[in-house]
Amino acid sequence: MYNKNNILFLYAILYFAFLYIPVMLLPVFSFNDAIHMVFPLKGFTLKWYDQMINASRLHQALFNSIKVGVTASIFSTLIALLAAKAFTKYKVRLRQLSYGAILLPFVIPEIIIAVSLIVLWTGMGLQLGLIPVTISHVLFCTPFCMLVLISRMEGFDRNLEEAAMDLGENAWGTFWRVTFPLVLPAIVASLLLSFVISFDEFILAFFLTSNDQTLPLYMWGQLRFPKKLPHVLALGAVIIVATSIIVMLSYWLRNLGKPTDKKSNIGGI
């Protein structure tokens, strides 16, 4: 019944192009020997990459982004891991309410979260900077992490933990020898994905930082200057390639050694 549908297939290919052409344009123009992004292409050059490598403010921004990203991914994964455990192991009272509350930051417009944190932060007389940015990123990443972890832990066969106990392990031994290694791929995936989210995040960082720039803020600042544009393209190309690799890796990890290879679970994005 569902063997072929040429019209839908054609549509899928067109949509695919629509999705990828805008993204691929940046890497293409990053090798173009011209300042303006116009067709036809002029010639091949690596000078924008050279410029990128030598931009010192970029280095600082990159360092800030990594600092924020690593901290945010560790905290959000840790918080999400505990929450995912609670939701998959216990029948929690008011389950829907707690679940909804934790997922809420994912739905509320980022700008609302951003201005609210400004009000709180300045109200407490504190300086805006990378700390509130990191906090907001933890808040924003936790729902993603939790969905990724729950989708793995839901398929987790509880008999495996019981089998470990039956074979003489106590709760701690069961966790380290069975639960942890089985959930580990999802934990790594969660770390990677939340790092990518934080690394690319713009709005929260834009509102909540003062002088310390993250990489997206640096790029935003450079977009206004046409002469600076090409090296941002080079940077963008590098980021696109790097995030794609990280995301592919995390997808692969999430499906690694699933107890039942029946269906790939993509419930949690």
């Binding site: 929450a83 455990k85 509320i108 944190l117």
Partner: peptide, 27 residues
């Protein structure tokens, strides 16, 4: 069971309350 569950949920809920709910209330 509920106590254990909420002990695990505590960090997440605390974060939502401190970093989202209370700032929004303040706003």
């Amino acid at each position: 069971e509920n106590i254990k569950a909420y002990a695990l949920l505590f960090p997440a809920l605390l974060m939502v309350i401190l970093a989202m709910a209370s700032p929004m209330l303040l706003t």
